[in-house]
Amino acid sequence: MNDMRIVERLVSTNEIKIAARDVNVHYGSSHALKGVDVDILNGHVTAFIGPSGCGKSTFLRCLNRMNDTIPSAKVTGSILLDDEDIYDPKVDPVRLRAKVGMVFQKPNPFPKSIYDNVAYGPKIHGLTRSRAELDEVVETSLKKAALWNEVKDRLHAPGTGLSGGQQQRLCIARAVATSPEVLLMDEPCSALDPIATAQVEELIDELRTQFAVVIVTHSMQQAARVSQKTAFFHMGNLVEFGETGQIFTNPHDPRTESYISGKIG
């Protein structure tokens, strides 16, 4: 299935960016994630697949502590970002999220102009010293998100006025603008049509040259197309984690095979 890849890019590093060990998540009394161990590599796209409610999005939200916003969620185990435990009490989630950016399922641009949407992150983190610098960051981010050519003449039009695919790329530009080290994407294409999906997938593959990218998807084809590593979740367990090619052609676990062949899901 390797031939489904859009492009094959060489990856220079193989270093571990995020190391998760024995991660458990409880929502109140329900045990949503059970003892997950995953390594996220730099320069790779890692895909999380599995049926709905399997815990893949929950795990994704652990990686930048978005679960903190849900009062009933409780996370145990260790998640190391560059060998630092992100759940250490000394860690400020605000700083963590600047390093680990996130793109959501539904395009959610702020009701502000396109420019202000992209400039939001750099502004709050104080990444630029002058207006010119900020302009530059906005331009590069929009270019990285392959949106620049479409919006360069209307940077001050509201971001909510763009089409769905453009909105999602705007959200990606917004996430990229804070220059994160890891980019988390929660089913970024599920609200998009096939053409917009293709554009975003192309973009994801380009982005991995700069960040470690983690993508949650319930489309197996998409996982196969864009990722190098795939993790299969089922009922809160990490069933199998390995090279994408191997997972799709030669799964070790019978559950993975049933899912991929469409028997469960």
């Binding site: 978005m66 605000v94 996130m102 959501f104 539904k106 009701p111 502000k112 939001y120 992150g121 709050i124």
Partner: peptide, 27 residues
């Protein structure tokens, strides 16, 4: 104001008060 706005802002590393002042209140 939809929850997705809050998520977007928090996900970018904004503090809750920054989210409120710069995203929720303007919206």
């Amino acid at each position: 104001v939809p929850q997705s706005m809050r998520d977007a802002s928090l996900g970018l590393g904004a503090t809750p008060s920054e989210t409120i002042r710069q995203v929720i209140v303007p919206a």
